[in-house]
């Protein structure tokens, strides 16, 4: 069984790796953005799915990475690869600054603080015009690198999913989940909750920053509202809730299902996809709060570590 799963995974990855050889430009762009959503949803899962601290401002890390990466590319002539990694580092630094005080807040207070963070970042980016181009945005030199960015995004999605696997099957992950289930009990058991929450938070900030850098390079143009939209955070959350929060494959399943469905539906029906999206939120929250994988786990006694 275990070998079958591994073999299936390997074949899947091989097919994805070969896909650009046969794909149209649209196919590559579509898959690239799909990988991006998998990476973002999975990152959100690391903090919110595992420790239960709901972040409503995760796009702040994405935007920070996008701007850091874009600035390094345009004004310092960096290659987009290292520039995006630096974007990830910038996001982690931001997470450290903001997480240290904010993770002491509990429940809705943390969620709201994060919501504020995103707005603050957007305003700051608009304000420091000399560096960021302000409201007029930042235009990167023209470069057609969708093929390479496809692999980079894919690697990011794979890496963060691998991290989720490592965490969920390890003691560190158990500590995260203990915090989620009962923080006071976790503390009583000797878990340094502040420290572990911060670890989860930093981990969850890195990949969105990197992916933001890739995104900026792929788009060739970013502006404050295009990389700091609240909608991106909400989409991440819905994807994770839909697939199953706190699981390894839930965020992947949620991102793939919703993104593919959105593409199929919304090309045909203009307003329907918004209704559909709203309906999913309501449906999931009311009927299957643990998402698809959560339901399957309950019903078919699947292992906790999927």
């Amino acid at each position: 069984m275990r070998w079958a799963v591994l073999a299936a995974l390997a074949i899947g990855l091989l097919l994805l790796a070969l896909y650009p050889l046969v794909a149209t430009g649209y196919g590559i762009r579509f898959m690239l953005q799909l990988f991006m959503w998998v990476a973002l949803a999975q990152s959100w899962n690391l903090i919110s799915g595992l420790t239960g601290y709901v972040s409503f401002g995760h796009v702040a890390f994405f935007g920070t990475g996008a701007y850091a990466g874009a600035i390094l590319v345009t004004t310092h002539g960096w290659h987009w690869g290292p520039a995006s990694l630096a974007g990830g580092v910038a996001a982690v630094i931001l997470a450290l600054i903001i997480g240290y005080p904010c993770l002491r807040l509990k429940g809705p207070y943390f969620a709201i603080a994060m919501l504020g963070l995103n707005e603050v970042m957007r305003v700051l980016v608009s304000y420091f015009e000399g560096l960021t181009g302000g409201g007029s945005g930042l235009s990167l030199p023209t470069l057609h690198a969708s093929g390479q960015i496809y692999y980079a995004m894919g690697a990011a999605a794979l890496a963060v999913t691998g991290a989720a696997h490592l965490l969920i099957t390890s003691r560190v992950g158990l500590r995260f989940m203990t915090i989620r289930e009962d923080e006071i009990a976790a503390e009583a058991m000797g878990i340094n909750t502040e420290r572990y929450k911060l670890y989860a938070f930093l981990l969850s900030a890195f990949v969105p920053g990197v992916v933001g850098g890739f995104f900026a390079r792929d788009q060739g143009y970013i502006e404050p509202i295009s990389v700091f939209p609240l909608l991106t955070t909400i989409t991440m959350i819905v994807m994770v809730l839909f697939g199953g929060k706190g699981t390894i494959w839930g965020p992947v399943l949620g991102a793939v299902t919703l993104f593919v469905f959105q593409e199929l539906v919304w090309a045909r029906f203009l307003y329907l996809h918004q209704i559909f999206f709203g309906a999913i939120i309501v449906f999931v929250v009311l009927l299957m709060p643990r998402g698809i994988l959560g339901v399957l786990q309950e019903r078919y006694r699947l292992p906790r570590t999927i």
Binding site: T24, G25, Y26, R29, Q33, Q219, Y221, I222, W266
Partner: peptide, 21 residues
């Protein structure tokens, strides 16, 4: 005609679709 939802990222994907698909 497609709807880009006022988002550049969606616009980019749709123009790829228009041209290559």
């Amino acid at each position: 005609l497609y709807d880009d939802q006022s988002q550049p990222a969606t616009g980019v994907r749709l123009y790829e679709k228009l041209i290559t698909s």
